[in-house]
Design a protein around this nucleic acid. Structure first.
Length: 866
RNA sequence: GCCGGAGUGGCGGAAUGGCAGACGCGCAGGAUUCAAAAUCCUGUCGAGAUUACACUCGGUGAGGGUUCAAGUCCCUCCUCCGGCACCA
């Protein structure tokens, strides 16, 4: 018996093999001329318009796929399959972001080379991904650890190294085009080289960095969350070290401007906006009493200048030593040392208890010539603005807290709108940071805040005391790691101290095999131990050492979407013709955890490549969708310790890939966080069983006799067209869960019919195939077709056929439903009104009153107002 | 503290300002079966009322408002989730 039962294991293996062997999803490159054509499934692929659907680059971890991966991948696969059937040439690739810490830590523990671990993990993850039936073009895979790939990562690094940023044009340019100022030229070759070095977009810097002893590496600001490492939660301390940096700050304004035109969620845009953190304010110079020096501060509230009652410098500020008076020398020195020892966690301490030390020096407030004390405190950061502030305790919360603690004067200069607040601010009992009307501000008194800001900025500029300034929170990107398993920098350090970049023709610089992967613990990278590799003789006979830091994991994922377009090209990073055809990425799906890191870095690299003429679009990712997190069945985050982790392999083994795909889409809206339910998987798996039984005789495995070349009846046709319409619209708007509901309704109907017209079943199979491709390929074959349905034209709907002939309309009296009437769908409003008023129940409800107004909403309801 | 997002049956969720709860799960009853699984059918927001159907009232976190009509728009508040957190 049951010879013809729905055997998903067999069917899924069969079609996965078919797709791979036939390269069903191999994607030819089109040309410029075809990229903007109208989509047409009748055209050969290469002559169609393009559609680029991208999944976020997976890290091939030892744990393999988790259920979060297939969520985004299924969504993108549905769109890819749909777009293909609609008539696009769809680029849908996948690859491996395979450098990174876990493989290296495993190497440290076991001695297994990270390359071996990585290969194993990639193979496993590829198997898992293939077992879900995604329509990737497997010939376009990339692997960041492949020298043929990282050759180009190194190549892009050289582009950064060999470029400078033209502030006037707001654009990166080749370093050869950097104008050298005359005064630098006058100082000779060495000065010129130094000047050039200072302008490169990749540069070395000896600066306090986030050193993580547990990981044995430094981390980017973005990788430190609340004073501990984002990965693993290890403590991070500040330590001065020589590091490679990328000048992302130069692109801050453009990274901000580019956000406008992107079809991304407002919340992700906001996160990037906040991270870049633009503030417009003014820099103001304060004379230091009795010194020949000026203390420059940045403030966004130059209008509160009259309320500045003290100054605060960061403990690291260069002027501290110079202006501290003898009697405070020791106390200041003690405070500086204490601050230096503090980790970032201590400095951003949650209690925010302010500490500080008076320097003995005074500054002169330029607006009223008052002497105000200069303090140092670690609540002022050396790395932002000028590293010093004017403190206006009446109108800044931090200054207020500090002033209260150290008994410094508080002077109100802004009048809040609320009279109670105004009184409290006047008494120095409340801090008011909002806009208001200026008080105690000399000739400016009475001005509203925004106007005051403009006037005082102009005034400062005129008196040469300051000028309007823009500051960004964004810092340059710390780009080196003291790890083995990453891209080597194509850089040599010569004996004489010169830094020499490799020629492009010398790439790739291959990571050497080493025995010992352990971090040295001193901050010196493991590569330093590979003496043969590190020590190099230059053509002129002198010696040099290779850079031993490696690039961070972000490097490879910054540009992978570009290599997919031309994954195997040995000669160029990608063919410009292909780039012109495929870019930009039309749809990018992935987790929201990459909101600032990956997405900001990628955009940054893309802009460099744009400036240098390698890419044709200003932004890489046109539309971005973030899939939500999948929680465990207990509504908690999935984690080993909670024991609530769902293993995709197991789900596929028990229910099949089609059920897995369908369930992940049926759970709820793509972007929402939602809990897993094994019973929910059973639900959709029952649905697929029903689809099967609707067409297939379980005894024979052949089509049921009910499947006939018959003309569909009116209702069947209507439901089919409603379904095509709904599913088409829902795919376009990423409403996959409701698309599935509609397909369920369609199947529920067809299963009740004694005759199931083949034409209807065929169209149904085609639309379901985007969601559950394996079962649909099998059914398509059973329906008498001999090749894949992947390129069949997407069914068209006729909205006339989808319309109901009769509709039920609710009749309300004063908004309360009193009756329901059935009218013909093309009834006029007047007719509907007449029928509604004729209703006995309505008449009872009216109780003889005359309707004042009757509102008729076609196909919906009638509301009678009395 | 600040900035986002979200609160709808027992559960996941659905609803261009127009009949709240589509679809699925679960549950209950029935059919089929020697029996079970599978499958199919019926019911399933709450309260009231009825032999039964019909019926009545209430209901989308709380409170107010706009509107003929509010889950949806506006105001105030509460809760949960996510992000940022001395950036002057």
């Amino acid at each position: 018996m049951d010879k013809g039962a729905y055997d998903f294991t067999k069917i899924e293996a069969k079609w996965q093999k078919y797709w791979l062997n036939n390269k069903t999803f191999g994607t030819p490159d089109g040309t410029d001329a075809t990229r903007n054509r109208k989509p047409d499934p009748a055209l050969p692929l290469a002559q169609r318009p393009k559609y680029y659907v991208l999944d976020m680059f997976p890290y091939p971890s030892g744990a393999g796929l988790h259920v979060g991966h297939p969520e985004g991948y299924t969504a993108s696969d549905i769109v890819a399959r749909y777009k293909r059937m609609v008539g696009y040439n769809v680029l849908h690739p996948i690859g491996w972001d395979a450098f990174g810490l876990p493989a290296e830590q495993y190497a440290v523990q076991t001695g297994t080379h990270p390359a071996a671990t990585t290969q194993k993990n990639i193979d496993n993850m590829r198997r898992q991904i293939q077992s879900l039936g995604f329509s990737y073009d497997w010939d376009r895979q990339v692997d960041t650890t492949d020298p043929n790939y990282y050759k180009w990562t190194q190549w892009i690094f050289l582009k950064f190294y060999n470029s400078w940023f033209d502030e006037k044009l707001q654009k990166a340019r080749p370093i050869e085009e950097l104008p050298i100022p005359d005064e630098i030229k006058a100082q000779g070759q060495k000065a010129i080289q130094k000047y050039i070095g200072e302008n490169r977009l990749a540069y070395e810097s000896e600066a306090p960095v986030n050193w993580c002893p547990a990981l044995g590496t430094v981390l980017a600001n973005e990788e430190v969350v609340g004073g501990v490492s984002e990965r693993g939660g290890h403590p991070v301390v500040r330590k001065p070290m020589r590091q490679w940096m990328l000048r992302i700050t130069k692109f801050a304004q453009r990274l901000l401007d580019g956000l406008d035109k992107l079809d991304w969620s407002e919340s992700i845009k906001k996160l990037q906006l906040d991270w870049i953190g633009k503030s417009v304010g003014a820099e103001v110079d304060f004379e230091v009493a009795g010194h020949n020096s000026k203390l420059r501060v940045f403030t966004t509230r130059p209008d509160t200048l009259f309320g500045a009652t003290y100054m605060v410098m960061s403990p690291e500020h260069a002027l501290v030593d110079k202006i501290t008076t003898p009697e405070y020398k020791q106390a200041v020195k003690d405070y500086q040392e204490k601050a230096a020892r503090k980790s970032d966690l201590d400095r951003t301490d949650l209690a925010k208890d302010k500490t500080g030390q008076f320097t003995g020096a005074y500054a002169i407030n330029p607006v009223n010539d008052t002497n105000i004390p200069i303090w140092i405190s670690d609540y002022v950061l050396i790395s932002y603005g000028t590293g010093a502030i004017m403190a206006v305790p009446a109108h800044d919360d931090r200054d207020f807290a500090f002033a209260t603690k150290f008994n410094l004067p508080i002077i109100q200069v802004v009048q809040p709108g609320d009279p109670n607040d105004a009184e409290l601010v006047k008494q120095g009992k409340l801090c008011f940071a909002g806009d208001g009307i200026a008080v105690n501000s000399g000739q400016f008194t009475g001005l509203p805040t925004p106007e005051f800001k403009k006037k005082i900025s102009a005034w400062l500029e005129e008196k040469k005391l300051g000028k309007e300034t823009v500051n960004f929170k964004l810092r340059d990107w710390l780009f080196s790691r003291q790890r083995y398993w990453g891209e080597p920098f194509p850089i040599l350090h010569a004996e004489d101290g010169r830094t020499i970049a490799l020629k492009e023709t010398d790439l790739p610089l291959v990571l050497p095999a080493v025995e010992d992967f352990k971090p040295t613990g001193t901050g010196e990278p493991p590569l330093a131990k590979a003496a043969d590799w590190v020590n190099v003789k230059l053509p002129n006979g002198t010696k040099a050492k290779r850079e031993t830091n490696t690039m961070p994991q972000w490097a490879g994922s910054c540009w992978y979407y570009l290599r997919y377009m031309d994954a195997k090209n040995p000669g160029v990073i990608f063919d410009p013709k292909k780039e012109n055809y495929w870019m930009p990425v039309d749809l990018y799906i992935g987790g929201a955890e990459h909101a600032v890191l990956h997405l900001l870095y990628s955009r940054f690299w893309h802009k460099l490549l744009y400036d240098l003429g390698y890419v044709s679009t200003k932004e890489p990712f046109q539309k971005l969708i973030n899939q939500g997190m999948i929680l465990g069945e207990d509504n908690q985050k999935m984690s080993k310790s909670r024991g609530n982790v769902i293993n995709p392999d197991k789900v596929i083994a028990d229910y099949g890939a089609d059920s897995m795909r369908l369930y992940e889409m049926f759970m709820g809206p793509l972007e929402a966080t939602k809990p897993w339910s094994m019973q929910g998987v059973e639900g959709v798996s029952r649905f697929l069983g029903k689809v099967w039984r609707m067409m297939i005789d379980l005894e024979t495995g052949e089509l049921l006799r009910a499947v006939q070349d018959a003309k569909p009846d009116e209702e069947t046709l209507r439901i089919l067209h409603q379904t095509i319409m709904k599913v088409t619209g829902d795919i376009e708007s990423f409403g996959f869960n409701t698309a599935i509901s509609q397909m369920m309704i369609c199947v529920n109907h067809l299963s009740k019919c004694d005759v199931r017209p083949k034409s209807v079943l065929e169209q149904f199979v085609l639309i379901l195939s985007a969601f559950a491709p394996h079962i649909c390929e099998e059914l398509w074959e059973k329906l008498g077709h001999n090749k894949t349905l992947a390129y069949e034209p997407w069914p068209k709907f006729d909205s006339e056929l989808a319309k109901e002939k009769k509709v039920e309309i609710a009749v309300q009296v004063l908004g309360k439903i009193k009756d329901k009437i059935v009218v013909s769908a093309d009834a006029t409003e007047a007719e509907i009104e007449k029928i509604a008023l004729a209703s006995e129940k309505v008449q009872t409800a009216l109780a003889g009153k005359t309707p004042k107004k009757v509102i008729v909403i076609k196909d919906r309801l009638v509301n009678i107002v009395v």
